[in-house]
Design a protein around this nucleic acid. Structure first.
Lengths: 147, 147
DNA sequence: TCTCTAGATGCAAATAATTCGCAATGTCAA
DNA sequence: TTGACATTGCGAATTATTTGCATCTAGAGA
């Protein structure tokens, strides 16, 4: 298992390095930690959570660097920002397969889904107005159906 | 025309009073001004804009009251909050017919649209996961199609 | 119409999240 | 190896919004 973990870390580090380079950013210890956190995240962490987790990997990561790195990656399109219903900004790697979000308003749980049909309709609507879609945001706020 | 304007104002004031009462709020001079601004708005003003316009009607409206009133109306569901792509919070009366938003990323222009088909698909998706939709947010970020 | 009280107001200070200035440090192309 | 310039941490500054508090006022009831 130690072997597996080490390999996984190396793997993610290189993936992360690539993302940083693609974004035109220098690869630093701190940024490596931050990007690794993003690769490992299975949720949608906010800046504070990213900072905390990055510090677990490298205690030298400062708040300013976390915000600066997240902003730089988001600006270059490598990171998506989400602000579910007036909450704080949450982050998610853009390299993940595209999906939209469904939020359980009672538990705060965030689920993911895709609908080719909706994607197609969105494009159609935009086209009808003479537009091309650059990005979109679809969030469904739901309650578990009682039965 | 003076007649028309006066009638329109009266109309909006009573509509506004009703909304305030329904929200369980007392009808004050300041709140009347704020709610009238919301009724008259053809855009999606942020708190600062609402405050400015309300002050044109009644100079005594303070920032705190603007925020407090907007928050109270939003909490009671009479007002929708929007945060288009990381910008400030914008407001829109919930009594307006339902619609989603299309944002021209080059001009910032906000357009409205509805698609019964998308609405239906959303409900279907939620249902498939065992959920009922409480609210949703669909925003299309677009660029005018060059030809 | 008068009174009374919970709710509302303005002001200024307080928060929360994020950004910025700056001197010190680190990356990486040559 | 080196030098230019990007990046860092720190703390102060911003921005948007909220809150504490003393003072008013809407509006139910006498």
């Amino acid at each position: 298992m130690l072997h597996g973990s080490a390999m996984a870390s190396d793997f993610y580090s290189s993936e992360g390095d690539a993302i940083l380079r693609e974004a035109g950013l220098r690869v630093t210890r701190q940024r490596r930690a931050i990007v690794r956190v993003l690769f490992e995240a299975e949720d949608h962490p906010d800046a504070e959570q990213v900072l905390g987790r990055a510090r677990d990997k490298d205690a030298s990561v400062s708040q300013a660097t976390a915000y600066r790195t997240l902003a730089a990656l988001a600006d270059k399109g490598h990171l998506h920002r989400h602000t579910f219903d007036g909450g704080v900004t949450r982050y998610e790697l853009a390299s993940r397969p595209h999906h939209d979000h469904m939020i359980d308003v009672e538990t705060g749980e965030v689920m993911e889904f895709v609908s080719e049909e909706i994607e197609r309709l969105q494009k159609k609507i935009a086209a009808e107005h003479g537009y091309d879609i650059v990005a979109h945001r679809l969030e469904l706020y739901c309650k578990r159906r009682r039965r």
